[in-house]
Amino acid sequence: MDLKLKIWRQSSRDAKGKFVDYEVHDISSDASFLEMMDLLNEELVEKGEEPVAFDHDCREGICGMCSLFINGRPHGPDTAITTCQLHMRKFRDGDTIVIEPWRAKPFPVIKDLIVDRSAFDELIQAGGYISASTGGVPDANAIPVNREKAELAMDAAACIGCGACVAACKNASAMLFVSAKVSQFALLPQGKIEAKDRVQKMVAKMDELGFGNCTNTYACEAECPKEISITNIARMNREFFKAKVS
């Protein structure tokens, strides 16, 4: 298939960006979206032009590195996948595809389609862990964990930290990301000890970093490649409330 591309190009964090038009030809419908981008870049390099910078790594939907906003949707026009799992068969010959970086104040654009997501690392550093040091822990089966709760914890823990939830949200809220981590640990007996402290610190950090609040549009859930549920946000709100009143 032949395609027209409108790609955001921005040379550096402080530079002004703009859309640049490209065309690609004879793309196989079996190719992945990023393989299409590879072919474009290969052509650009052959012409001596600078390739389009975009983040990617595992190309199997788990590292959370890829982050393209395609035709107005994070990770493009399919559900429950990352950009690297998107295939060209989802497009039609002759289509024009608009490709942008994540747009959110806490994720500044660094170059072209690459954004800085270190704010997510800071959120985890604020308390997104159980403070168990290496060694000195009991046998793994010493504390049984309700299977249903373990499954719910796993549902929340499946988050890959890609930032699609923030990019999808009109408020650039990180509630889904933070609530997934808070929920994972709130559901497990091992995580309960620090639960109050964790939720307060992570929420305070979220505000400090400039992420917006949640206004219940559910865009985050709709665009999450791992289908993290917004019930996690409800659980985090309960945890936050519990922490504040007790």
């Binding site: 168990a132 060694g135 009991p138 793994a140 049984p144 964990v145 994972q184 091992q190």
Partner: peptide, 13 residues
């Protein structure tokens, strides 16, 4: 395994 469970790794149960 002990360490990971203590960290909250949600292994299958």
């Amino acid at each position: 395994i002990d360490q990971c469970v203590a960290q909250g790794v949600p292994f299958a149960r």
